[in-house]
C-alpha cells in the first residue's frame, strides 16, 4: 500500500525511503533555523499534532474500515492522562507518562470499540459518539482530572526527554517532530505487516476474512487500541507542545470531525495522506483569512472568516468525495508521475 514517502521522485532511481529521509532532513536541519516563531506556533505544531491524530484515525478508518467520531475524546484522554501521570507520580520520566497516556487512550478505545463487534458503518460512527460525549462529560464533571482547577484548564509541564529539555517554540517543535516521526514510522511498519493486511482484509470483506482464519474480533479491537494509542499521544502533543493550556471543551466534536476530514481529504488508507490532509486543514484557514482581509478589508472580520471557512471546507469535502475519493495523496501521485514523465521526455 502507500508508502510513507512524500518525495519528489527523480527520474533516476532512488531508494524508496529517499523522499522520507529528505523531508526529515529538511524538518530537522533546515526548518529550525529558518522558521519564525509564528511558523512553529501557528502552523507546524498544530500540523504535527493533527497529522499524528490523522495517522491514528487512518489506521482505524482507512485500513481497518471502522468509522469513528470519537477521535477528539481519545486525544483528550491522552492529554489529561499524561498531565495526571506527570503530576501525581513523582519522578516519572515524561516519556513514560506519554506512553502511559497512550495506553490509557488505548484502553478507552477498546471499551468504545466493543460496539464495532456488532455494528458497522453509520451505526458504529454514532456509537463512537458516545466516547466523545462521555469523555468530555467525565473530564468536566470530575475536577480531579484537572487537579481541581476551577475552569478545568490544565497547564503543560516542562518538556524534557532523556535529560534534554525542550523549551521555546523550536524546542517544542523538535519534541513534537520526534514523537510524530517515530510513531509514523511504527505505523508504517504496522500497515505493511501481517496485522496491517488483516486490517485491510476485515475492511474489504469481513466474512471472507473470518473464513480464512483472520481473528476478526481481535483484529477490530486491536485496530481500536492502536489507533487510540496514537491519537492519545497526538493529544499529548496538542496539549503539551502546541497549546500548553487546554480544557476539555477544546476536544469537542468539531475536533473529531476535523480529524475525520483530514483523513478523507488526505486519502483513506494512506499514511502520507494524513500529513497532506493536516497540512490543508491547518494552512487553509490562514490563507483564507489573509486572502479575505486582502480582498475585502474590514468587512472580513472573524465572524465572517469562521463562516467562510466552514462553507469552503464543506464544499471542498464534497468535491473531494466526488472527484477524488482517494484524496490529496492520489492527486499528488498523479501529478508526480506526470512531472516525472515530462522530465523523462525532455
Amino acid at each position: 500500500m502507500s508508502a510513507v514517502t512524500a518525495d519528489f521522485s527523480l527520474p533516476f532511481s532512488l531508494p524508496r525511503y529517499a523522499g522520507t529521509v529528505a523531508v526529515l532532513a529538511i524538518a530537522y536541519l533546515i526548518v529550525p533555523f529558518v522558521g519564525t516563531s509564528y511558523l512553529f506556533e501557528a502552523i507546524l505544531l498544530p500540523f504535527l499534532a493533527l497529522s499524528l491524530a490523522g495517522v491514528g484515525l487512518n489506521l482505524l478508518t482507512g485500513y481497518a474500515g471502522q468509522v469513528s467520531l470519537g477521535s477528539a475524546a481519545f486525544m483528550a484522554v491522552g492529554a489529561f492522562a499524561a498531565y495526571n501521570f506527570n503530576l501525581r507520580v513523582d519522578g516519572l520520566p515524561l516519556l513514560v507518562s506519554i506512553v502511559l497516556a497512550g495506553l490509557s487512550a488505548a484502553v478507552i478505545g477498546i471499551v468504545f470499540g466493543l460496539p464495532s463487534l456488532r455494528l458497522r458503518g453509520f451505526y458504529l460512527a454514532v456509537s463512537t459518539l458516545a466516547a466523545q460525549f462521555f469523555v468530555q462529560w467525565a473530564l468536566t464533571k470530575f475536577s480531579w482530572f484537572s487537579n481541581d482547577s476551577a475552569s478545568g484548564v490544565i497547564d503543560a509541564p516542562v518538556l524534557s526527554l532523556a535529560g534534554i529539555s525542550f523549551e521555546g517554540p523550536v524546542g517544542r517543535y523538535f519534541f513534537a517532530l520526534t514523537i510524530v516521526a517515530v510513531l509514523t514510522f511504527l505505523s508504517y511498519r504496522l500497515v505493511s505487516s501481517q496485522t496491517g493486511r488483516n486490517f485491510i482484509a476485515v475492511r474489504d470483506n469481513e466474512t471472507a476474512a473470518r473464513i480464512i482464519g483472520v481473528p476478526v474480533l481481535r483484529t477490530k479491537l486491536l485496530a481500536f487500541a492502536i489507533s487510540s494509542f496514537i491519537i492519545g499521544v497526538a493529544g499529548v502533543i496538542w496539549a503539551f507542545a502546541y497549546l500548553r493550556t487546554v480544557e476539555p471543551a477544546g476536544f469537542n466534536l468539531d475536533r473529531s470531525f476535523q480529524i475525520l476530514f483530514i483523513v478523507i481529504i488526505g486519502g483513506l488508507a494512506s499514511i502520507r495522506g494524513a500529513f497532506f490532509g493536516a497540512a490543508l486543514i491547518v494552512v487553509f484557514p490562514l490563507i483564507l483569512s489573509r486572502l479575505g482581509a486582502f480582498l475585502l478589508g474590514d468587512v472580513f472580520d472573524s465572524g465572517v472568516l469562521d463562516m467562510t471557512q466552514r462553507i469552503v471546507l464543506g464544499a471542498l469535502i464534497i468535491l473531494f468525495l466526488i472527484l477524488e475519493p482517494d484524496g490529496l495523496v492520489s492527486l499528488w501521485d498523479r501529478l508526480r508521475s506526470r512531472v516525472t514523465a515530462a522530465i523523462r521526455r525532455a
Binding site: 500500500m1 485491510i200 474489504d204 471472507a208 476474512a209 488508507a269
Partner: peptide, 9 residues
C-alpha cells in the same frame, strides 16, 4: 459465489 477478494491488497 460473489467475489470476496480483498480489493485493497
Amino acid at each position: 459465489q460473489n467475489l470476496a477478494l480483498f480489493k485493497g491488497l
